[in-house]
């Protein structure tokens, strides 16, 4: 990983589902330790982009290198370098947090799986519930456990797909603290969100994805927050008309 300057290199990336172009010619470079927040209306292709970058789905065309690995090759070594928080928690509901993380630690081939799992559970403040079934957890607790799952193997790159969705203020603050800590530890983070204040607060690069393309991609220093908000809400409004749920005459 250290030998690659760019943690992420994306060139002319495309993904089509029939006639629908979910990702339509995205170019992107992220250096190790950079934090990119991608905003965009529903259906803009943000989740598809994360799925491609995490190797869950193959692009129709173009290339994407993550930690120096071509995502299309499906190299298991690449998956050692990434952690993913998606819409789904990816947690077994009938297992406890400790059992879930121990299973994952064994799948990653980590040394001392129990100690690593206990430490990760402690980091997200769920020590007292470590032996309760995940099925009994609230949305916020599940999301915290998802973070523990994603960082258990100490990945260099994190893909976060709308991680603040459904979280209350406290859980949201806990998540923000964790993301800041990870960023301070020089982890590369790519996050999608609809929460403008959260997204802009933490990142050092901002993108706006509309209809599969980056309509905007700048460093945070070059972003005028008010103008960006106008641009974002315009994109959301236009998207609503496209989807037939707009209210404007």
């Amino acid at each position: 990983m250290e030998s690659h300057e760019n943690a992420l290199e994306v060139r002319h990336l495309r993904k089509a589902f029939g006639v629908i172009k979910a990702v339509d010619g995205i170019d992107l470079e992220l250096k190790q330790g950079e934090f990119l927040t991608i905003f965009g209306p529903n259906g803009a292709g943000k989740t598809t982009l994360i799925k491609i970058l995490s190797g869950l789905t193959k692009p129709t065309s173009g290339t994407a290198k993550v930690a120096g690995f071509d995502v299309s090759e499906g190299n298991p070594e690449m998956r050692k370098e990434i952690g993913v928080i998606s819409h789904s928690t990816c947690l077994y509901a009938d297992l406890t947090p400790l059992e879930n993380l121990m299973f994952l630690a064994k799948m990653h081939g980590l040394e001392e799986p129990q100690d690593r799992s206990l430490k990760a559970i402690d980091e997200v403040g769920l020590s007292q519930r470590r032996n309760d079934r995940v099925r009994t957890f609230s949305r916020g607790m599940l999301q915290r456990l998802s973070i523990a799952r994603a960082i258990l193997h100490d990945p260099k790159i994190l893909f976060l797909d709308e991680p603040f969705t459904g979280l209350d203020l406290h859980a949201s603050n806990v998540l923000k603290e964790h993301l800041k800590k990870l960023h301070d530890r020089h982890r590369t983070i790519l996050m999608t969100t609809h929460d403008i204040s959260c997204g802009l607060e933490m990142c050092n690069k901002v993108a706006l994805q509309v209809k599969g393309k980056f309509a905007f991609l700048e460093s945070i220093e070059d972003v005028d927050r008010d103008q960006f908000e106008i641009m974002y809400f315009d994109a959301v409004r236009n998207n609503q008309f496209v989807m037939g749920i707009g209210t404007r005459g």
Binding site: G55, L56, S86, S88, T89, L91, Y92, A93, R149
Partner: peptide, 9 residues
């Protein structure tokens, strides 16, 4: 809960 996705990762 998307556990298969987790396994794929």
């Amino acid at each position: 809960n998307g556990c298969l996705t987790g396994l794929m990762l």
